[in-house]
């Protein structure tokens, strides 16, 4: 139980509280009860009760940074797999600029099948697929690194409070992390040994994101002298 008398870990259908609170993400209001709709951890902020789902696909939110894999393209846009129920669209004008002409510019010259792209969700609602943009600093094609997948619900644990967790791993392994909110992480580092240690640390977060003392466990997995 958490300090407010609510359960910490919940399953679909579990009653979280009967108190008058707002239903946040992954919580449904049933009569006077707030009920969890996913397996996850309960999070209470102000008067809103949410469940951080430990499983499931990424649900796009505007302004999220995501990493997408090019799976197809039409004459006007690329289609990116963003580990979501929906395919992300990246418009050709975003990459080629305003003077893009579909008859003259070949999309595959810029991004080919399987390429990884760091992008931001520009627009998304129930009626349309997520529209992505790379029109920002540090966005665009990812040229090097290794792709690692983690449940989107565990991304917050990977980042840690004010980035403490990812900074610890980066410092210990000399690696650079590009973290997509959609659960895709690109690790760039110098040698295979550092890469293995970074992957091992992510594995610890994937398995034990719900347990207390996570930072210590990750630090231990990185070996001595990591702090």
């Amino acid at each position: 139980m958490t300090q407010n008398g609510m359960p910490n870990m919940v399953m679909p259908g579990d009653v979280i509280t009967r108190e008058a609170r707002r239903a946040g993400q992954n919580v449904v209001l049933k009569g006077d009860m707030l009920v969890s709709s996913k397996v996850g951890r309960v999070s209470v902020t102000d008067d809103t009760v949410s469940v951080i789902g430990l499983a499931g696909k990424y649900v796009p939110h505007i302004d999220d940074l995501v990493i997408g894999k090019v799976i197809s393209h039409s004459g006007q846009a690329w289609e990116l797999d963003i580990n979501s129920a929906y395919v992300g669209f990246l418009l050709a004008t975003d990459v080629f600029g305003r003077d893009f002409a579909s008859h003259a510019d070949e999309l595959s010259s810029k991004l080919g099948m399987g390429d990884l792209v760091a992008a931001r969700v520009a627009n998304f609602d129930r009626t349309r697929d997520p529209l992505l943009t790379i029109d920002d600093r540090d966005l665009g094609k990812i040229d090097s690194g290794v792709l690692v997948r983690i449940a989107p619900g565990k991304i917050a644990s990977l980042i840690g409070r004010q980035g403490s967790m990812v900074q610890t791993i980066e410092k210990a392994t000399n690696a650079a992390f590009t973290i997509g909110q959609n659960g895709l992480v690109v690790i760039s580092c110098e040698g295979p040994e550092e890469l293995l240690r970074a992957k091992k640390a992510i594995g610890v977060i994937e398995r034990e994101a719900y347990l207390p003392g996570l930072l210590d466990k990750v630090t231990a997995s990185l070996g001595s002298g990591s702090r």
Binding site: M11, P12, G13, G53, A55, G56, G153
Partner: peptide, 11 residues
Amino acid sequence: LADAGIPMRDM
């Protein structure tokens, strides 16, 4: 279904 993270009102 719960393992796939599909939102459910109940099991």
